[in-house]
Amino acid sequence: MRRATGRRQLPEPLRAVNVVGVLAGVGFLLPLCWLVVGAFKSPNDLARFPPVLLPDPPTLENFRTAFVDQGFTGFLVNSMVVGLLSTCCVIGLGIPAAYALGRTTMTGRTSILVGLLIVSVFPVIAVVPPLFVILRAADWLNSYQALVLPYAAFNLPLAIWIMRGSFLSIPREMEESAEVDGASTLRTVVQVVLPQAMPGIFVAAVLTFVACWQEFLMALSFNTAADLQTVPVGISLFGGGFELPYGTIFAASCVALLPVVVIVVLLRRWIVGGLSSGAVKG
Score class of each variant (00 low, 15 high):
residue 264 V to D: 11
residue 221 S to R: 14
residue 266 L to E: 02
residue 196 Q to Y: 08
residue 269 R to M: 11
residue 200 G to A: 12
residue 255 V to E: 02
residue 191 Q to K: 13
residue 211 A to N: 11
residue 261 V to N: 03
residue 257 L to H: 12
residue 250 F to S: 05
residue 200 G to F: 13
residue 197 A to K: 01
residue 268 R to I: 13
residue 184 S to A: 00
residue 239 G to A: 13
residue 265 V to R: 09
residue 177 S to K: 07
residue 203 V to N: 08
residue 156 L to R: 03
residue 193 V to Y: 00
residue 217 L to K: 06
residue 165 G to E: 12
residue 216 F to S: 07
residue 255 V to Y: 01
residue 211 A to T: 08
residue 255 V to F: 05
residue 246 Y to R: 13
residue 225 A to L: 06
residue 164 R to A: 06
residue 216 F to E: 08
residue 198 M to E: 04
residue 251 A to M: 06
residue 169 S to F: 06
residue 238 F to Y: 09
residue 257 L to M: 09
residue 269 R to F: 12
residue 165 G to Y: 15
residue 208 T to M: 04
residue 257 L to F: 14
residue 262 V to K: 04
residue 253 S to F: 07
residue 202 F to W: 13
residue 191 Q to T: 14
residue 265 V to W: 02
residue 160 I to W: 12
residue 243 E to Q: 09
residue 223 N to P: 13
residue 215 E to K: 01
residue 219 A to R: 01
residue 235 I to M: 06
residue 172 R to S: 05
residue 199 P to V: 09
residue 211 A to D: 13
residue 175 E to F: 09
residue 248 T to F: 09
residue 185 T to K: 00
residue 158 L to G: 15
residue 221 S to K: 08
residue 184 S to M: 00
residue 263 I to W: 12
residue 183 A to K: 01
residue 214 Q to I: 08
residue 257 L to V: 08
residue 193 V to N: 04
residue 167 F to I: 15
residue 163 M to S: 04
residue 167 F to L: 12
residue 197 A to L: 09
residue 174 M to I: 11
residue 260 V to K: 08
residue 264 V to Y: 15
residue 269 R to P: 10
residue 208 T to L: 03
residue 264 V to A: 14
residue 167 F to E: 05
residue 159 A to V: 12
residue 180 V to H: 03
residue 235 I to G: 14
residue 254 C to L: 04
residue 264 V to G: 02
residue 224 T to R: 09
residue 212 C to A: 10
residue 190 V to T: 15
